[in-house]
Amino acid sequence: MIRIENLSYAIEGKEILRDITLDVPRSGFTALIGPNGAGKSTFLSLIARLEPLQTGSIHIDDLQIGQCSDRDLAQRLSILPQVPDQPPRLAVRELVGFGRYPYNRGRPTSDDGAKVDHALSVLGITDLAQRSLDTLSGGQRQRAQIAMIFAQDADYVLLDEPLNNLDLAGTRTLLVILRNLAEQHGKTVVMVVHDINIASRYADRIIAMKEGRIVRQGAPDEVIDKALLHDVFATDAMVLSSDFGQVVLV
């Protein structure tokens, strides 16, 4: 479980997060939604210890952010970073191999090799293993990054808007993979996403943020309604109920 207590965060005097207390239960696929500037990305980067905490505390099971060792945490929690503008000239297999770094500190064993192969096959990029990242499309690169996270084999996987720059097919493939991570592999997946419909369709749980606070949380059916769109997103859009969940007509 990710346990967040009294978390506040300010940048140059401007409050980004205001006294957030929240439990994200183990396993399942959680979507973090909210309008621009709600503090979603900051929230995620604090959980992933990319920025130092100011007030409040975050626990990943028994590990406390800021207190535990970086290496222990890297085996427990991973974050998918934004894909760099200028991709490195690394073979896909080399990048995915770095996912094992928290375990082997650069001295890979045959077990690590097997885990890397497994990650490549789960992400369906075995045939790209020897290709250099700078020769791949955006979607393929994104999958290579996720294969690295998969090889890292942490219980908690955080993703900050992983769907940017992906086309329809790429988006769907990635979402199916993430669902699969949560369902088949028992991972706890937390994703910041802009598209409410994607959150509604794929997530088990939605957390809605506004102005640095958590305003709603729960199953998609409970959270997504006209009131949410009006209060949180400040827009009047229609919500349709379908067999596949709530659909927002943008």
Binding site: S45, A48, R49, L50, S69, D70, R71, D72, L73, A74, Q75, S78, I79, P81, Q82, P84, P88, L90, L95, F98, G99, Y101, P102, R105, G106, I149, Q152
Partner: peptide, 21 residues
């Protein structure tokens, strides 16, 4: 430290994610 430098070349977020100081 060749591995560490290569990981740092992937950016700060990736480095921290992989438990690097």
């Amino acid at each position: 430290a060749a591995d560490q430098f290569a990981i740092v070349g992937l950016g700060r977020a990736t480095s921290i994610n992989l438990g690097l100081n």
